[in-house]
């Protein structure tokens, strides 16, 4: 059982590190999706371990929310690209100055 969880953790960590090191907003977004998928895997695994379907249902909801989130996120990326001609997250460093 724990091998599924372990895989889930590895994928999650890889996704997180990807968020930290990649600068292309689309790839960063993909990494976020990877993290979500990793959690889904954990949900499904726990669902099997505990013998009920609640975990699977949670994973389903995650998918639905992820779909909505991707729509909005990509729309934002598109509109940023339209005005700034770039998808690098570093260029949008308006938090400073």
């Amino acid at each position: 059982m724990s091998e599924y969880i372990t895989l889930s953790m590895i994928l999650f960590t890889i996704g997180a590190v990807g968020v930290l090191v990649r600068r292309n907003a689309i790839i960063v977004f993909m990494c976020v999706e990877l993290m979500l998928n990793a959690t889904n895997l954990a949900f499904v695994s726990f669902s099997r371990q505990h013998g009920n379907l609640d975990g699977q249902l949670a994973a389903f909801f995650v998918m639905v929310v992820a779909a909505a989130e991707v729509v909005i996120g990509l729309a934002i990326i598109i509109s940023i690209y339209r005005t700034r001609r770039t998808t690098s997250v570093d260029d949008a460093s308006l938090l400073k100055s």
């Binding site: 999706e33 499904v44 669902s47 779909a67 991707v70």
Partner: peptide, 22 residues
């Protein structure tokens, strides 16, 4: 892992819709 429904949804939603969107 005994989740055929999620199998289908994963293929359709994620691989089909979301990845295409990307």
């Amino acid at each position: 892992q005994g989740a055929p429904f999620l199998f289908a949804v994963q293929i359709i939603v994620y691989t089909g819709a979301i990845m295409m969107l990307f």
